[in-house]
Design a protein around this nucleic acid. Structure first.
Lengths: 227, 227
DNA sequence: GAGTGTGAACGGCTTCACAGCT
DNA sequence: AGCTGTGAAGCCGTTCACACTC
């Protein structure tokens, strides 16, 4: 058998944390940031209460980052925040471009917390010639057919896709070819991308459907945060 | 104990379907809608391919809706779509209000698929007096302090919250008091609501953080759709 | 007392595999 | 052959409980 023990080798480095855990870490980070910077010590219980999860869950999540807590004491808030940022990969600045400058794009651009959390939008693109040249939040809109070229030029790693559904796949193809590493997609379609490009999709209509579902079936508890 | 001799309620009383399943059902529904309306028959394999899941998963999900498929044949697309709509609770119209008329709100209002999927926004509210009276997508913006009164008047069941973070909790309180049944929240805070009010939260900044995390750790596969 | 770290039990979702129908 | 429905198994994330530390 040619495969042998070399295949399927777990890349060492301890425990891989799940996507769900990563999501909660974002929540914890937000809670820490909103904290009145008192003593600097926090406990799993306080974080849990602020984020709507159990304290055991918080401890389990934080333990996966290393030995950050001290028994009987708690966690050091700044140290904890730094560790979470590091594992989430937001301890540096990500260079991003945005394609499709509609209302959603404008809302995102104005959203504080993008730049503060380490995301920087470097360029805007739109296929509509009437929009090209217009300035939004300090950036001039460029034509979409320059997308690949400019992505390479700027060294952008992330793309935010806020184009209509029909335009999404062609743009995604162009982004993939230009060497982008991640796409945050708001178009309600299933994008096909090479496996080296990571994808997170947000479908706003589906969220409303989920809400209808929750009401329809009397689920036990309200949801702390959703995806 | 009422009921008595009537047991054996197979059709819908038995299995509760999970939130994850409900999310996938939304995906399937979208795939069905986008289908070229050929014969009218679909198989679990085709749906699976369109949604980025396994065929076994599709069968398991659809089986939980009742006995819709026919062995050797597949599913009848229109019938399947109707069944999914029914279980998701979107086989009727939901009356909704929207609070906080910024760019995000305008993007949502323009989003086709809201009204077509059974959601109708009846009124808009904003705390900014300068915006009150302005018409957006055919609706005049009303002052937020009329919110509770108008929710009752209109019989609204759902609310879409697109206000700044600081304003979210007070508005949520007002909505809860007015008898709203569900809230779709876009403000980056953990809302406290009575358990009878269902909550779905969408945090756009967290989605970007998730993307950074995926890139940072070379996850095996790209994600079909996210929450 | 307050609080973390963690094995172990638990529960639920997903995948497998195949029987059964067309 | 093609495809669904479904026990059974596998897997993974969450919760429990408690030893341990300050």
């Amino acid at each position: 058998m040619p495969g042998g023990p070399l295949r399927d080798r777990r890349p060492e480095g301890g425990e891989r944390l799940s996507r769900a855990t990563a999501h909660r870490l974002s929540l914890y980070l937000r809670a820490l940031a909103a904290w009145p910077a008192d003593g600097g010590k926090v406990s799993s219980g306080r974080i849990a209460a602020a984020c709507g999860v159990t304290d055991a869950q918080v401890r389990r999540d934080l333990a996966s980052l290393g030995h950050l807590g001290r028994r009987g004491i708690g966690y050091d808030a700044p140290e904890l925040a730094a560790a979470i940022r590091a594992v989430l990969g937001i301890d540096r600045t990500w260079r991003a471009v945005l394609v499709g400058v509609g209302n959603l794009a404008r809302a995102l651009l104005r959203y504080r917390g993008f730049r503060t959390q380490g995301f920087e939008v470097l360029a805007l693109f739109d296929a509509d010639p009437a929009k090209v040249g217009e300035r939004v939040e300090g950036l001039a809109i460029e034509p979409t057919d320059r997308l690949a070229e400019r992505v390479r030029e700027l060294g952008a790693e992330l793309a935010i896709l806020t184009v209509p559904a029909e335009a999404a796949q062609p743009v995604a193809d162009a982004l993939g070819a230009a060497g982008i590493r991640g796409v945050l997609n708001f178009a309600p379609v299933l994008l096909k991308l090479p496996p080296r490009v990571k994808l997170v999709s947000v479908d706003l209509a589906i969220q409303l459907e989920q809400l209808a579902f929750l009401i329809q079936h009397g689920e036990p508890a309200a949801d702390p945060a959703a995806r």
